[in-house]
Simulated scan of single mutants.
Amino acid sequence: MNSSNALPRLVTPQPARHPAPTVKAQRLAHLIFERPDLDEAAIFLTDFGLSVCHRDADTLYLRATDPSPYCYRIHRAAKARFVGFGLEVASLDDLQRLSRLDGASGIEPSRHPGGGQQVRLRDPSGFLVEAIHAQSPSVALTHRAPLRFNFALQQVRVNDTQRPPVEPPEVLRLGHVVLEVADYQATCAWYSQHLGFIPSDVQVLEDGSPIVTFMRLNLGDTPADHHTLAIAQGFMATYSHSAFELVDADAVGMGQRVMRERGWTHAWGIGRHILGSQIFDYWQDPWGDKHEHYCDGDLFTSKEPTGVHFVSPEAMAQWGQRMPRSFTKPRLSPANLVALLRNLRRSPDLTLRKLRTLMRLFG
Rank of each mutant, 00 (worst) to 15 (best):
L172A: 11
Q203F: 13
L147D: 08
P199S: 15
R157M: 12
E108H: 02
S138P: 00
R144G: 09
S200I: 10
V119A: 02
L174A: 12
Q162W: 14
G115E: 04
P137N: 06
E167H: 11
H112D: 13
C188Q: 12
S125N: 01
S110M: 04
G175L: 08
G116H: 07
A189K: 13
N159I: 00
P124Y: 11
A131P: 04
A131Y: 06
H133A: 09
S138Q: 02
V171R: 00
V129C: 02
L128G: 00
R163Y: 04
P169S: 00
V158P: 00
L174W: 12
T187W: 10
R163D: 09
Q185T: 15
L121Y: 04
P169W: 01
G175H: 14
P199R: 15
P168D: 03
S125V: 00
G115T: 02
Q118W: 10
G115I: 03
T142K: 13
C188R: 05
W190E: 05
R122D: 04
C188P: 06
D160K: 13
L174S: 13
A189N: 11
G114P: 03
A186H: 04
D201I: 13
F197T: 06
R157V: 14
E170G: 00
G114K: 07
Q154I: 04
P146L: 08
Q162A: 11
D183W: 05
P199A: 15
A189D: 15
P137F: 05
L141K: 13
A186K: 07
P109Q: 13
R122F: 04
R173F: 09
L172Y: 07
L179D: 04
R173A: 13
D160G: 05
V181W: 01
I132G: 01
E108L: 12
H176W: 07
D183V: 03
S200M: 08
A140L: 02
P124S: 11
Q117T: 12
P137G: 02
H194P: 00
Q193V: 05
L147S: 11
F127Y: 12
E167K: 14
G175S: 15
Q135I: 08
V204C: 14
Q117C: 06
I198A: 03
A134S: 14
L141M: 13
R157H: 09
F127S: 03
S110C: 11
L205M: 15
W190F: 15
G175Y: 07
A131G: 05
